[in-house]
Simulated assay, not measured.
Amino acid sequence: MAVGVPICVECGTRSNPCRCKVVGPTIGFLAFAAAAVVEWPVGALVYCFRHMKGRRIMAHPATVVYPAVTNSIPI
């Protein structure tokens, strides 16, 4: 069984001279996946009682974690 490492590439950015980012988006995706494993089940449980709070918890990895990690690494 072969497991591939996810590689994310973002081209067209102006944060570095090459105009492409590989490290930031890849680490951002891994951080997103780690946060989602924890936050999505918790958000689903909270959603049963408080709909908007549950939605915010489940959206946190995509709206906060991924952009913060991706933008903090310029390459």
Rank of each mutant, 00 (worst) to 15 (best):
A34C: 13
K53D: 13
S72P: 03
Y47V: 05
V38L: 15
N16E: 01
A68Y: 01
L30N: 08
P61A: 05
A33I: 09
A62K: 08
E10C: 14
P6Y: 02
G28D: 04
V64H: 10
A33Q: 13
I75L: 14
V46D: 04
A62L: 15
T13S: 12
V3A: 04
I73Q: 04
R55Y: 07
C18W: 13
Y47M: 13
M58T: 08
H51I: 09
E10G: 13
M58K: 12
W40K: 10
T63E: 14
A35Q: 00
S15K: 11
P61E: 03
V23H: 06
A34M: 11
V65Q: 01
A59C: 13
W40G: 00
F49M: 04
V64M: 11
P67I: 00
A35G: 03
V9G: 04
N16I: 01
A36Q: 11
T70Y: 14
L45A: 12
C8S: 11
W40C: 08
A59F: 13
P17V: 01
V23G: 02
R14G: 15
H60K: 10
T26C: 08
E39V: 02
A68F: 01
V37C: 10
C20W: 03
I57D: 00
A33M: 13
G28Q: 02
P25D: 02
R19H: 15
V64A: 12
V3D: 03
G54T: 05
V42G: 08
H51G: 05
P41S: 03
F29W: 09
N16M: 02
V65K: 00
V22P: 00
I75H: 10
I57S: 00
P41F: 03
L45P: 00
C8L: 14
V22G: 00
Y66E: 06
V42Q: 09
L45I: 08
V3L: 09
V46H: 05
I7V: 15
K21L: 14
I57M: 07
F32S: 04
T26S: 15
G12N: 07
N16V: 00
I73T: 05
G43M: 07
I73S: 07
I73R: 05
V3I: 06
V65G: 01
T13A: 10
C20V: 10
F49G: 07
H60R: 12
M52F: 06
S15I: 09
T13Y: 06
I7M: 11
N71Q: 08
V5Y: 01
A34D: 03
V42A: 15
H51M: 12
R55H: 10
N71F: 08
P6S: 07
A44I: 02
G28V: 03
R19I: 01
P41N: 04
Y66S: 06
S72Y: 10
R55W: 10
P6W: 04
I27P: 04
L45M: 13
G24T: 05
G24L: 06
P25V: 05
V38F: 13
K21M: 15
Y47C: 12
G54K: 08
V23R: 14
L30H: 07
P41K: 00
V46C: 04
G12H: 06
V46T: 06
P6R: 06
Y47S: 12
P25Q: 05
C48D: 07
I7W: 03
V64D: 10
T26K: 06
V65C: 03
Y47I: 05
G54P: 12
P61G: 02
I7Y: 06
P17R: 05
H51K: 15
W40I: 11
A2Q: 08
V9S: 10
F32K: 07
